[in-house]
Amino acid sequence: MHPPEMRARARALRARGHNIHSVARSLSLPYTTVWHWCVDRPQPAVFGSAVRCFRCHPDQDGPPDPAAYAYLLGLYLGDGHLVTTDRTPVLRVYCADAWPNLIDKCDAAMRAVLANKVQRIQKRGCVAVQSTATHWPCLFPQHGPGKKHERPIVLADWQRAIVEAQPGDFLRGLFHSDGCRFANRVVVRGKEYVYPRYMFSNRSTDIMALCQWSLDLLGIAWRMNLPWSLSVARREAVAALDRHVGPKS
């Protein structure tokens, strides 16, 4: 028996326009299995992003790509913004020009989660990676008026389950938005020592707590050096975080 996430991935590929043969080939599944999943069942009378919104389909127990969702959630909580006042909601994440690969990763994550089309709007010193879709609010219920650090940020139970299963991808999104990895230099008794260090800064105590929780899930040691700033500096902790996050590029 195939797991539910495999069925969800097949239907997501089909919703993007792939034919049954290509879906079966890409997932190494029999043609008849994919046909029964994607064709031989009642089709919802919905269009656009509703077809891909896993929260609006009771037969889908999660996103087709949980890692991409966890990563995008981290980016959104850091440098993202969901505009719901326009006719169609717009998910927008700001990425610095200095990290072109980060822009590509954000674009890819949006497409893997929901977007059929992603725009890149050049701003001063950064690029706004954005997608317009009616169902973005379904996937990011943390949206609301005002700045994130001035209002509660609480994950829904289904979001917590995804982060618990994909803490490294969630941390990658957080650190790629509001974090950094750099060479820390200290002088002890006249001798200079250089070692890698991670820093994460966010004025929201709720978002900071989510970062701490995710690090704890992976057993990565951290400490607060300021009320809004977290440090990962122990050699084994940095090595562990390297496996999940790594430097921006």
Results as ranks from 00 to 15, higher is better:
residue 70 A to R: 09
residue 110 M to E: 06
residue 55 R to I: 05
residue 135 H to K: 03
residue 152 P to F: 06
residue 180 C to P: 02
residue 112 A to T: 11
residue 100 P to Q: 05
residue 187 V to G: 08
residue 52 R to N: 01
residue 95 C to V: 14
residue 140 F to S: 10
residue 123 K to N: 15
residue 188 V to M: 07
residue 143 H to P: 00
residue 62 G to Q: 14
residue 105 K to W: 06
residue 134 T to G: 02
residue 117 K to R: 14
residue 98 A to Y: 01
residue 152 P to Y: 08
residue 135 H to W: 06
residue 171 L to S: 04
residue 141 P to E: 00
residue 73 L to G: 03
residue 169 D to G: 04
residue 184 N to K: 13
residue 179 G to K: 00
residue 147 K to S: 05
residue 149 H to F: 10
residue 72 L to M: 01
residue 94 Y to I: 10
residue 102 L to N: 12
residue 108 A to K: 15
residue 141 P to I: 03
residue 66 P to E: 04
residue 99 W to M: 04
residue 54 F to G: 03
residue 80 G to H: 10
residue 152 P to A: 14
residue 142 Q to D: 03
residue 184 N to Y: 13
residue 113 V to Y: 08
residue 126 C to P: 04
residue 146 G to A: 05
residue 91 L to H: 00
residue 64 P to C: 11
residue 113 V to N: 09
residue 137 P to W: 01
residue 79 D to Y: 01
residue 62 G to I: 13
residue 142 Q to S: 07
residue 69 Y to L: 07
residue 189 R to Y: 09
residue 124 R to N: 11
residue 122 Q to P: 06
residue 58 P to I: 02
residue 63 P to G: 04
residue 101 N to S: 12
residue 188 V to N: 11
residue 57 H to W: 05
residue 90 V to A: 00
residue 88 T to Q: 10
residue 166 Q to Y: 12
residue 149 H to R: 12
residue 146 G to Y: 11
residue 60 Q to H: 13
residue 74 G to R: 03
residue 115 A to Q: 07
residue 119 Q to E: 15
residue 57 H to F: 02
residue 65 D to K: 01
residue 109 A to G: 05
residue 121 I to D: 12
residue 120 R to P: 00
residue 168 G to A: 10
residue 156 A to K: 07
residue 87 R to S: 11
residue 179 G to A: 02
residue 116 N to H: 13
residue 74 G to K: 04
residue 87 R to W: 02
residue 133 A to D: 13
residue 184 N to T: 10
residue 98 A to K: 03
residue 67 A to D: 06
residue 137 P to T: 01
residue 98 A to F: 09
residue 53 C to D: 08
residue 113 V to D: 04
residue 53 C to M: 09
residue 54 F to H: 14
residue 182 F to L: 12
residue 163 V to H: 08
residue 128 A to Y: 14
residue 101 N to T: 13
residue 122 Q to D: 08
residue 136 W to S: 03
residue 134 T to I: 12
residue 116 N to D: 13
residue 60 Q to M: 14
residue 52 R to F: 11
residue 182 F to S: 10
residue 165 A to K: 14
residue 159 Q to F: 02
residue 69 Y to E: 03
residue 70 A to H: 06
residue 137 P to A: 05
